[in-house]
């Protein structure tokens, strides 16, 4: 009897745990967002997070999109030249960068950089009782720690991605002009002609959602970190892994909503 029931029990338990953690994360996100819109807002902390999450991520996002744009031009040229459609290179570069690659790659890079550091910082604060100390000083940790990070994530990622879009297109331009021998005016005309506002906007909406997911995962795993160095270590890993997976899932969902 047990042998029959055990797989069913295990499946049931796993499913229950899965939904339980979705519930916990949702309620955590709800509390964080509630405190993000409810005054008072800690401007000083918010500004610090803008610098941490936005400004310091510029180099990594810039480099990622620059090389992505360059590779994209090279690869699509190789493909399109086989049926003499080289003119499409510019369009392929600009659409891929703005709609997909800039938001997704920037999101993943920021997940590694920012998600990990948020989880490690808040996790260490949990372990060293600093979060309890906040409570005893009548300061709500959601308002003081979580809300500024969520707001900064939601608002800075679109800006980062917009800059990434420009740098990515520039990367494709550099390769096309200096290595593949395109005429600059033709290339630029092809870039603009088929670009619609919705391509860029959808990318920025994605970026905003990804920024929320990355900071949420960092905060959630850090806040619920286990005891000791090991607890903080696994909180960091979980934050990065879960943020990356969620980015890929939500990328599909948002694309489906926008373009179907």
């Amino acid at each position: 009897m047990n042998a029959i029931l055990e797989p069913i029990q295990t499946t049931g338990r796993t499913v229950m745990q899965f939904f339980a953690s979705i519930g916990r994360i949702s309620s955590f996100a709800g509390k964080g967002l509630y405190h993000a819109v409810l005054p008072p807002i800690y401007w000083r902390l918010l500004f610090r997070q803008f610098i941490q999450i936005g400004y310091y991520s510029l180099p990594v996002v810039g480099l990622t999109t620059l090389f992505t744009g360059m590779v994209l031009a090279l690869q699509s040229y190789t493909g399109f030249s086989r049926f003499s459609a080289e003119g499409a290179v510019a369009t392929v570069v600009v659409l891929s960068v703005t709609r997909e690659l800039a938001p997704v790659l920037a999101g993943l890079m920021v997940a590694g950089r920012v998600g990990a550091s948020i989880a490690a910082e808040i996790g260490t604060m949990r372990v060293t009782e600093q979060i309890d100390a906040l409570n005893t000083l009548s300061t709500n940790p959601y308002k003081y720690l979580i809300a500024p990070r969520l707001i900064a994530g939601i608002l800075t990622l679109p800006i980062l991605v917009l800059i990434g879009d420009i740098i990515g297109i520039l990367g494709g331009y550099i390769v096309s002009i200096y290595s593949l021998g395109f005429a600059p005016e033709n290339y630029l005309r092809n870039t603009w002609e088929y670009l619609e506002a919705m391509d860029v906007i959808s990318g920025l909406v994605k970026a905003s959602v990804f920024g929320f997911l990355v900071t949420l995962m960092g905060c959630y795993h850090g806040y619920n970190s286990g005891r000791g160095a090991q607890g903080v270590g696994s909180a960091t890993t979980n934050a990065v892994v879960s943020a990356s997976i969620l980015i890929l899932i939500f990328n599909f969902i948002i694309t489906k909503i926008f373009f179907s």
């Binding site: 600093q130 309890d132 100390a133 005893t136 009548s138």
Partner: peptide, 20 residues
């Protein structure tokens, strides 16, 4: 609860100072 908490002060075992 925030009102009640203002009556309290606490010295934590490890200090729990905010290192930032």
């Amino acid at each position: 609860r925030d009102g009640i908490m203002q009556k309290f002060g606490m010295l934590f075992q490890g200090g729990a100072l905010f290192d930032s």
